[in-house]
Simulated assay, not measured.
Amino acid sequence: MPGVYLFLPISEGSSEDELEILEGTKIINSQKVQLCYNARLHHRLFSLDRPIPQICGQEYSIRNRLLAGFCRCASSFSQISIHNVTLTFLKFKVPASDVGTSDTGTTFNCGQFYGFELSIETFD
Rank of each mutant, 00 (worst) to 15 (best):
9 P>W: 02
79 Q>A: 04
27 I>L: 14
52 I>D: 08
52 I>T: 11
33 V>I: 12
50 R>D: 12
75 S>W: 05
53 P>K: 11
78 S>T: 13
48 L>K: 03
103 D>Y: 04
97 S>H: 05
17 D>M: 06
20 E>D: 10
43 H>D: 07
32 K>W: 09
85 V>K: 05
100 G>S: 07
98 D>P: 08
93 K>V: 07
72 R>C: 11
6 L>T: 10
46 F>A: 09
19 L>H: 09
92 F>Q: 00
80 I>S: 02
88 T>S: 10
46 F>D: 04
60 Y>N: 06
123 F>A: 08
88 T>N: 07
69 G>K: 14
79 Q>N: 00
101 T>W: 02
120 I>P: 00
43 H>V: 02
7 F>D: 12
104 T>I: 06
62 I>N: 13
18 E>M: 12
6 L>M: 02
19 L>W: 00
56 C>L: 15
91 K>G: 05
32 K>Y: 06
40 R>M: 09
102 S>Q: 11
81 S>C: 03
74 A>L: 15
94 V>Y: 11
1 M>C: 05
36 C>E: 12
63 R>D: 11
9 P>T: 10
89 F>G: 11
96 A>I: 06
23 E>K: 14
55 I>L: 11
49 D>L: 14
19 L>Y: 00
17 D>W: 02
63 R>I: 07
18 E>S: 11
48 L>D: 03
106 T>S: 08
48 L>P: 10
112 Q>S: 02
22 L>C: 12
73 C>Y: 09
39 A>N: 04
103 D>E: 11
25 T>I: 14
75 S>V: 01
36 C>T: 13
6 L>C: 07
83 H>D: 08
124 D>K: 09
96 A>V: 05
67 L>K: 04
72 R>W: 01
21 I>K: 09
29 N>K: 15
76 S>L: 00
60 Y>S: 14
85 V>D: 00
85 V>C: 03
100 G>Y: 02
26 K>G: 05
49 D>E: 15
103 D>G: 11
59 E>Y: 12
83 H>I: 04
87 L>G: 05
87 L>E: 01
91 K>Q: 10
27 I>A: 15
82 I>N: 04
24 G>K: 13
